[in-house]
Design a binder for these strands. Structure first.
Length: 802
RNA sequence: GCGGGCGUGGCGGAAUUGGUAGACGUGCCAGACUUAGGAUCUGGUGCCGUAAGGCAUGGGGGUUCAAGUCCCUCCGCCCGUACCA
């Protein structure tokens, strides 16, 4: 608060009535809450916000200095949404005040034919003429009550209303009608735009819809972009490659030159100024829920004041219910003692006197408050005085590698950068970026089972909807209904069910009839479904609410659809790794997950192939043991490792593996590591190698991948070490052991590989060429022709062009 | 619309700076040891063809001695975002 980083203001917020809380922009998806999927509406509320916009430029520019995935960087760039342009004031005809707009294309100023304001704009009532008042009020009411979801789902629908007032063109003095329209957002820029229909798609569709004038002021340099536009888009050119026309003193200028000239002209005439606008909004910091850090602010005579440091941290008070109060206050309003006096600390309301203390803030911090800085605490977790000491922070500095989900691109991952900068500015941490490198790990997805059923309702004297039986449809039938191509048989089946239900409900509600219309998907527990077939009996048993449901089958079976999506409890598609741990061990699970593919890739969980990894670990184990057959069914296993000197081929296998694993770890390419371990094990098994000098380094290499088996082989009773393998030093790669003295050259003719030829690596390219051409096989493939050119790449390939 | 990513056998996926496409694993086929095999081991397995050979990295075109890799173009899939003036 003291640094003007946090402030209290009336702000339009995403209010979610069902959850009783405000949500951040990124917590809202498609007009509903990301968690729970409840509707969200826009509401003006006093809110604590953090001034992240003050950091917009730095958050944008510093992206160039960090090794984060391009997709995350790009998402953040878009979210910050920097655009450069100019502010510009339009006078209102017959009124004292003016309307300010922000535009990135002031060069099109002579093409302005109207202004549009957001319906929420406070200016609207001030200039609306009396004859338009009723229509405007109606429109504003309509627009405000149109949920975000509707607003977003039909972007194409053009709505708006003329206010009756006119603005004055600052250069030509023309009268421009002032409209309101919900394509203009209240929260961006000034909530008002200048309409240039000839050169902006949105203005264009608005103008076309309401029959407003369209005035062309940019002549495209190449005619194609204009002609390309088809149907509704024809006639609008929003590109920047063109020259100004019909534009007074701008005529003949290229757009980019016109931009400079018009901005200086606007500034000279005092109509506005060059300006940079960001899409990023300040971050709303209050949440109307219980679980969150309390905000250390109290209100003395209505003035917010900070709780003194000696009283920090505030702890959440006990309350009876974690729900908002009846009159809509946050849950903290239920606390009995939630007042503060600077001399006492948290206290009961009775201790608050006039001018001394007051109620403590009732909202709590959002989830990202803690996630934005907790990593700093890890550097010095036992420090009692500060979140982390200077020495610790100078030692650890930033996070070397952050592995996290891509879904936090514009939430947590932007805020954590913001906080780092903020703490750096306050001199509290030594770095401006929290993490040098970031990798998005892929998600293991689940395969969900979907059963389709009708949304049911009843007409007539309305049988209660929740008591109406559900009607489930087997996959094929549901698909045909969804595509509007049900067969006669399908319709017959549904009608039969409809009649049956009607008979049943009409016993109590004689005029009621069921309507079956839309089909919705319902997740079914995947443990129930085998090969897309759902046993209806068991399903009914497990789900009471579907006990009286009707099931329309195909070939006497109820089929579900399988879809791949995020693995999640709510989707009933969770596979626990417990069975795999029990049957194969935790090492196998760990190794298998690595072996599935690149770290960044998401893929559905499938255990096909897990036996390969398990088999590898068994094979690796057997390198250290001899098995003696006691009887037909019993084997005795005995640890046996030889102290003999390793041979050249054995050392070669080891050192090739060391090199590969080292590279793979540096590249986070764990799937290929697993395969090189398999290769090494197969090769050593082939050589029947059980030498300590080879196996011991190999166990160390394997230990980060399969820690349990490695630790066991390393310890007493096996390789006999006292300390944990964790402390063993990583083997050193020695090139001498892997060097070859010959290479099997692939010999190709016109780029097609024909045969291999083993040649010494000491040969010069000319000697290689000679050897190759003299080879009987080459002669065969040359078919008596003269080679035009021979390309020799040492240790790679020989290509003969014929 | 815009932005990011991706497309290779039946499947998961390998392939340094352009240099033997399909490593490794599954699956499948055959065999060995077995009362048995969901254990273990051996061999085979991209497609067409008896073979020689030909064709193959989403489709088409280009650069190159040589292209999964580079360039152009089209198609498809996934993720993010959405009236930002």
């Amino acid at each position: 608060m003291n640094y003007r980083l946090a402030y209290l203001s009336e702000a339009w917020v995403n209010w979610c009535p069902q959850m009783g809380t405000v949500l951040a922009n990124e917590e809202v998806k498609d007009g509903v809450s990301e968690r729970g999927g409840y509707p969200v509406e826009r509401k003006l509320m006093p809110q604590w916000s953090l001034r992240i916009m003050a950091y917009a430029n730095r958050l944008l520019n510093d992206l160039d200095n960090i090794e984060w995935s391009e997709s995350i960087k790009e998402a953040q760039r878009n979210w910050i949404g920097k655009s450069e342009g100019s502010s510009l004031r339009f006078g209102v005809s017959g009124m004292e005040f003016s309307i300010e707009v922000f535009t990135t294309r002031p060069d099109t100023i002579f093409g302005v034919t109207f202004l549009t304001l957001a319906p929420e704009s406070e200016l609207v009532p001030q200039f609306t003429t009396s004859e338009n008042k009723k229509a405007v009020d109606e429109y504003v009411h309509y627009a405000k009550n149109r949920s975000e979801r509707e607003r977003q789902s039909d972007v194409k629908k053009v709505t708006g209303q003329f206010t009756g007032a006119y603005a004055i063109h600052p250069f030509t003095g023309e009268k421009l009608p002032i409209w309101i329209g919900d394509y203009v957002l209240a929260g961006y820029g000034t909530g008002a735009v200048m309409g240039v229909p000839a050169h902006d798609m949105r203005d264009f569709s608005f103008a076309k819809h309401f029959g407003l004038q369209i005035k062309k002021v940019i002549q495209p340099n190449s005619p194609s972009p204009l002609e390309k536009g088809q149907g509704d888009e024809a006639g609008c050119f929003d590109g920047k490659e063109g020259k100004c026309i019909n534009s007074d003193f701008l005529n003949g200028l290229e757009v980019k030159d016109a931009l400079k000239k018009i901005i200086s002209e606007i500034e000279k005439r005092g109509l506005g100024k060059g300006k940079t606008q960001f899409r990023l909004r300040d971050a709303i910091f209050g949440r109307q829920r219980y679980w969150g850090e309390p905000i250390p602010i109290y209100y003395e005579n209505g003035i917010p004041k900070a709780v003194e440091e000696k009283h920090l941290p505030l702890e959440l008070p006990q309350i009876d219910k974690y729900l908002p109060t009846e009159n809509g206050e946050p849950p903290l309003a239920r606390a009995k003692n939630w007042c503060y006096r600077p001399d006492v600390g948290i206290c009961s309301p009775s201790l608050v006197e006039r001018g001394l203390g007051g109620e403590v803030e009732l909202t709590t911090m959002p989830g990202w408050a803690g996630s934005s800085w907790y990593y700093l605490r890890y550097m010095d977790p036992h420090n009692k005085n500060e979140f982390a000491g200077k020495d610790a922070m100078n030692y650890w500095k930033d996070v070397d590698l952050y592995i996290g989900g891509a879904e936090h691109a514009t939430g947590h991952l932007l805020y954590v950068r913001f906080w780092a900068k903020l703490l750096y500015d306050l001199g509290l941490i030594p770095v401006v970026e929290p993490a040098k490198k970031l990798i998005n790990q892929g998600m293991i997805q689940g395969v969900s089972s979907i059963a389709y059923c009708f949304i049911r309702a009843s007409g007539g004297d309305s049988y209660p909807t929740n008591l109406l039986p559900r009607v489930f449809l087997s996959k094929g039938i549901a698909k045909r209904f969804s595509n509007n191509t049900p067969s006669a048989a399908d319709i017959g089946l549904v009608d039969a069910v409809r009649k049956k239900i009607n008979l049943q409900i009409q016993k109590t509600h004689p005029n009621s009839t069921i309507t079956l219309d839309l089909i919705i998907p319902i997740h079914v527990d995947i443990n129930l479904v085998k090969e897309e077939v759902m046993p209806v009996g068991e399903f009914k048993k497990l789900n009471e609410e579907y006990g009286n449901a009707e099931y329309i089958l195909e070939e006497d079976k109820f089929y579900c659809e399988s879809i791949v999506e995020k693995m999640s409890k709510s989707k009933l598609n969770v596979v626990t790794p417990d069975d795999i741990c029990t049957n194969f061990g935790a090492d196998t699970l760990r190794l298998y997950e690595m072996f599935l593919g690149p770290l960044e890739q998401s893929k559905p969980w499938s255990t096909a192939g897990i036996t390969g990894v398990s088999g590898f670990l068994n094979k690796f184990w057997r390198l250290f043991h001899v098995e003696t057959k006691i009887s037909n069914i019993e084997l005795r296993e005995e640890f046996k490792v030889s102290e003999e000197e390793p041979t050249k081929p054995e050392l070669k296998i080891l050192h090739k593996t060391i090199k590969k694993i080292q590279q793979d770890i540096e590249n986070y390419s764990f799937n290929t590591s697993v395969s090189s371990f398999m290769i090494a094990t197969n090769d050593l098994q082939g050589l029947k190698c059980n030498k300590r000098a080879i196996l011991e380094p190999l166990v160390i290499l394997l230990s980060p991948f399969a820690p349990h088996i490695a630790e066991e082989l390393w310890g007493e009773g096996k390789l006999g070490h006292k300390d944990s393998i964790t402390y063993a030093t990583f083997p050193v790669y020695n090139e001498a052991f892997t060097a070859d003295d010959s290479f099997a050259y692939p010999i190709s003719f016109n780029g097609k590989m024909r045969f291999n030829l083993e040649l010494s690596l000491s040969l010069s390219p000319a000697e290689i060429e000679k050897e190759v051409l003299a080879n009987p096989q080459s002669i065969k493939f040359l078919e008596g022709k003269q080679p035009q050119k021979v390309i020799v790449v040492p240790k790679r390939i020989v290509n003969i062009v014929v």
